[in-house]
């Protein structure tokens, strides 16, 4: 009888072991957006790199974008399985703080390259890129040299924008206009609306229309031409440098209070600022790395425009005024 029981117990343990091999190793769950974890994105290699040093399993869970990420957290609340959320942008930080789901990281991290624009102990910048108007050199010989030239330029050369109500670049451009024009933003929008071909729900639709040749300009990132130069070997699409400066998008990651693997998570934050993570960012996420890379960026990145000035409104300002500014945009551009 005892023998049978022992056998059963051993058998049970064996099954438990086979069924759950990860048991021995802790699992770090990170929520992010899906282009990060796509086969061609930085996620897979980062997972391999981290797992080779952490004695753990890294589990990516991805949703469509930064906004969806925050909503997912709001829906899940304290019961979330996430240890870390990676992929919010600074405009969402205020909202993220309000959920009270995040906690400060409080470990020494190397200084990020955007330290002048972004300091936070709870939301750590891992990459960034200024927004830019990308133009098609085959259709446009004299791209605008400033936001003002864009706003006042000829109506027959159109730009495709994103909706600030549904997309982060759309919101970024709204803030760009606000940062430059302040109280006169409404008038600027009114003038610009002559040049707007259409306003799409997200970045993908806008960029798809642009590369299809529907308009000579689109709102995207300073880094976009790097993709075309490296992956498609073409210089056709270039960014227009604006004299007023460019609005900055910074992507950040945060630690969740409810995490049961905080030490491991903190270890990941250190890793995030190191070459094992940062090397993957430029040519897979097509953004500038905020931390240290093991080698200089590909030469194509040197050809990208270098904005003289970077603009960023505080998350508090954005959170307080977003609705009013969106309404201002609506009134100015709907006829």
């Amino acid at each position: 009888m005892r023998f049978i029981l022992t056998t059963l117990a051993l058998f049970g343990a064996l099954i438990g072991f086979i069924a759950n091999p990860a048991n021995a190793k802790p699992t770090l769950t990170i929520y992010t957006y899906d282009s990060f974890t796509a086969d061609w994105g930085p996620g897979p290699q980062i997972k391999t790199n981290f797992e080779s040093i952490c004695q753990c399993t890294l589990n990516w869970v991805s949703v469509s974008d930064g906004v969806a990420l925050l909503n997912r957290l709001k829906l899940e609340g304290k019961k979330t399985k996430a240890d870390i959320v990676l992929g919010l942008d600074t405009n969402l930080v205020k909202e993220a703080r309000k959920t009270e789901l995040f906690e400060p990281i409080r470990i020494g991290l190397p200084e990020s390259k955007v330290i002048k624009h972004w300091k936070s102990d709870a939301f750590i910048a891992y990459d960034y890129a200024p927004f830019a108007v990308i133009y098609d050199t085959e259709k446009m010989k004299n791209p605008p040299k400033s936001l003002d030239e864009l706003v006042n330029g000829p109506a027959d050369q159109k730009i495709i924008l994103q909706d600030p109500r549904t997309s982060t670049p759309g919101l970024g451009f709204l803030l760009w206009i606000k940062a430059v024009y302040g109280d006169k933003a409404g008038e600027a929008w009114k003038k610009l609306s002559r040049r707007i071909l259409t306003v799409t729900p997200g970045w993908s639709e806008a960029y798809g229309l642009f590369t299809k040749g529907e308009a000579p300009m689109v709102l995207s990132y300073v880094t976009s031409p790097a993709y075309h130069m490296i992956e498609e070997k073409t210089n056709r699409y270039q960014a227009a440098k604006f004299s007023e400066g460019h609005y900055l998008q910074i992507e950040v990651a945060g630690l969740l209070k409810s995490s049961k693997n905080k030490n491991l998570a903190k270890y990941f934050f250190k890793f995030m600022m190191s070459a094992g993570f940062q090397d993957q960012i430029p040519t897979k996420n097509w953004m500038f790395p905020a931390g240290i890379t093991s080698k200089p960026l590909p030469k194509e990145f040197d050809k990208l425009i270098k904005p003289e000035k970077l603009l960023l409104l505080s998350p508090q300002d954005v959170a307080d005024n977003r609705k009013a500014w969106v309404d201002e945009w609506l009134t100015a551009t709907s006829k």
Binding site: N71, D163, R165, T166, S193, I196, L197, T198, V199, T200, P201, E205, L209, W329, L330, T333, S334, K335
Partner: peptide
Amino acid sequence: LTLGGGPASTTLEVAIYQSL
């Protein structure tokens, strides 16, 4: 949204999406 040319072309569905 994609073909509408601007925020004047907005359906209820867009408003629903936005509020979520």
